[in-house]
């Protein structure tokens, strides 16, 4: 029964990824021949492998700038999304008022909006004639920087898109902590902040790791948000990959960049898998 999806993934993802790896190492035969036919600046070998394409891409200062931009935006987004999700999740866990219901509704709005539109909306909101500039103008801050088409806008967009997942994940985790465990801590003399630190935090490591890793992986591979809201250069790897492919007609270089991002994403993914395995090991002992 598990065969169909695994087969689909193997044929349409596993195989192409394998081909992509071969291509980045200089092998242009087989499934790569069509793409390789018209490509420019390829590094091809017929026997063995070559790392020439990697060396070229990593030696390119523009690509390196893109890579740093990607890492920077990814880290900022992870940190902000984790903090926001915790703040909102805690607020929702500890209070049930009209305001908390409004907050919970607000924080999942992005789920309802296609990313293309969200990116476009965020661009216009922070653009040179957008709301934020207008507001700053009326507050007398005429030199307020334009955020549209900057990496800051990209980070804002990525945060906006990832907040709902974070909040859902964190509130689900926080809500699964029984009230009695929180009350027992209060009873022992812990203040609310201390209860959060000693009970809620250690019991919600997994959801936090999940939020951080999925956000990170999402940002690393994202295209739409940086394409619509970001600067022309340096921008995230997703955008420059597409540029190398369609604008410069250098698919091999694009694939090399994809591999670099993939390695970063797998690195993050390892943390996720490790955390999950650790958790289920512990669960299997306890039950």
């Amino acid at each position: 029964m598990v065969l169909p999806p695994v087969a689909v993934v193997a044929v349409f993802i596993g195989f192409p990824v394998g081909a992509a790896i071969a291509y980045t190492l200089g092998r242009a035969g087989g499934p790569n021949s069509t793409v390789a036919l018209l490509a420019q600046r390829q590094h091809i070998v017929h026997h063995g492998v070559t790392t020439a394409a990697y060396r070229e891409v990593l030696g390119n200062p523009h690509v390196r700038a893109d890579l740093w931009a990607t890492v920077w935006v990814t880290l900022v987004t992870i940190v902000v999304v984790v903090l926001l999700s915790w703040a909102i999740g805690l607020y929702l866990r500890l209070s049930d008022t009209r305001i908390s219901r409004i907050v919970s509704a607000l924080s999942v709005i992005p789920l309802f909006i296609p990313v293309v539109i969200a990116s476009y909306a965020i661009l216009t909101f922070y653009a040179s004639q957008g709301f934020i500039k207008t507001l700053a103008y009326h507050l007398g801050w005429h030199s307020f920087p334009t955020l549209g088409y900057t990496l800051t806008a990209v980070a804002i967009g990525e945060i906006w898109v990832n907040v709902p997942f974070g909040v859902l994940m964190m509130s689900s985790g926080l809500n699964s902590v029984p009230n009695a465990l929180i009350e027992a801590a209060r009873d022992s003399g812990a203040s609310l902040p201390r209860t959060v630190r000693s009970v809620l935090l250690p019991m919600n490591v997994i959801p936090t790791v999940i939020v951080a890793t999925f956000t990170g992986i999402y940002v690393l591979g994202s295209f739409t948000v940086p394409y619509l809201t970001g600067p022309s250069a340096p921008n995230l790897m997703g955008v420059s990959m597409a540029n190398f492919f369609s604008a410069f007609n250098q698919p091999q270089q694009a694939e090399v960049m994809a591999m670099i991002v993939f390695v970063l994403a797998v690195g993050i993914g390892t943390i996720y898998v490790w955390a999950n395995v650790r958790a289920s090991k512990r669960a299997s002992i306890t039950s």
Binding site: P5, V9, P16, V17, A19, A20, N32, G221, V266
Partner: peptide, 19 residues
């Protein structure tokens, strides 16, 4: 299955084009 998320979509589409 999660690897389907981890590999950047553009890179995937480029080499998928060959297939």
């Amino acid at each position: 299955l999660f690897a389907t998320n981890a590999f950047p979509k553009i890179g995937l589409y480029i080499s998928m084009a060959g297939v």
